[in-house]
Design a protein around this nucleic acid. Structure first.
Lengths: 210, 210
DNA sequence: GTCTATAAAGCGATAGAC
DNA sequence: GTCTATCGCTTTATAGAC
């Protein structure tokens, strides 16, 4: 609202950024359930009661972290890496970016089954707005890629969209990373390959429906 | 040990089966963290203290449920659906079976990040034995399929194995199911397609490394 | 807004009678 | 082995002084 925020407001904003950063990291490390508000406060270096002056609940903390990562994704999709490429290349670039974020320990992992959290997220206007923006942009690119014959003709765009979301937090990456035998770049290449080209051999792919 | 278990032992075994059934269903429904021992006892219809006479901890309950589903998987892999087929068809049959189990609400979903649970599982001899058996059988088939040129030549068998495990509890299935627009068979076909053939079009697959 | 201290509730696990 | 009742701990959230 205010074009020239006061110094005091800037300090508060910076503190909230630090909080969200910590929440983001802890959500990626331990997941929502194992992340305690006490630990967040301790890592930020403030008292827990102070945390609750900035965010009304643990769910609001998670929502703020999700908004941040969604904003980062939207910024990437509007950036140079997705500028001159065709639709399929843009989708692959986004998928690669999500894997890099996950590899960097910055991809929050929320339990899909926690109903309290789900309720808080769908009730969060900012979160839902960002999620919708991202889905619409991806849906647009998916449509383009389909019309260009770049996507598997047997798969609806909806399935492609959900699959891309799911691969952004694919546990396979963590397992391969934990094994320690492969480089980050190698892991990302394999996961992108399995996602877009499948586990089967090219020759094994049938020309028509089986 | 005993070839002729007493009637009393059979009753106890039946009760433990009922417990594991309930745990299996609740793990699939709510996940490990949201599943409370109180709820398990209530659904089985016994007191919580009685539960702890059969299983020493919540983790042991989860381990028992995992052993059950691993045994079911091993039985399927030794059964007629995997008998006369070639290696790739066997792998696809197993993947399809896991999706059907998930669709039936019988696939336990454990948090990969819970260290207490992980420790209890790796310390469980029966669980580790079944997991190893299953991994070795799958690894064998993967090796055969690779030698037969039926799997993507760019992917190591390890990546294929972990991916199959991950797709067994792929959240995409739940999202598509919750949407309510598609039949169970349709959903399974799409997920198998995206897993083995990938999201990209056949023509888009490069002949050699990009 | 930040702190210390505490309330309030949920949950895993156990004691002890039968 | 099954039950009722409860312990002990963790965790979310808040009260009240400064």
């Amino acid at each position: 609202m205010n074009a020239r925020p006061s110094f005091r407001a800037q300090v508060l904003q910076a503190r909230e950024d630090a909080i969200v950063d910590t929440v983001n990291r802890l959500l990626a490390e331990k997941g929502f359930d194992a992340m305690t508000v006490d630990l967040v406060a301790a890592e930020v270096g403030i008292a827990k009661a102070s945390l609750y002056k900035h965010f009304a609940s643990k769910e609001q903390l998670a929502a703020a972290a999700m908004v941040r990562v969604l904003d980062r994704a939207l910024a990437f999709m509007a950036g140079p890496d997705c500028a001159g490429a065709d639709a399929l290349e843009r989708l692959k670039a986004v998928a690669r970016w999500t894997l890099q974020v996950q590899l960097a320990g910055q991809m929050p992992s929320l339990p899909a089954q926690n109903s309290t959290l789900r309720g808080a997220l769908v009730a969060d206007r900012v979160y839902m707005d960002r999620l919708l923006q991202l889905s619409e942009q991806l849906g647009e690119w998916i449509g383009e890629a389909q019309q260009g014959g770049q996507l598997h003709p047997g798969l609806p765009g909806e399935v492609v969209l959900y699959t891309l979301f799911a691969r952004a937090c694919d546990p396979v990456l963590g397992v391969l990373k934990a094994g320690g035998s492969y480089s980050d770049a190698q892991i990302i290449d394999w996961l992108l390959m399995s996602c877009f080209e499948g586990l089967g051999a090219p020759a094994a792919r049938p020309r028509k429906g089986r």
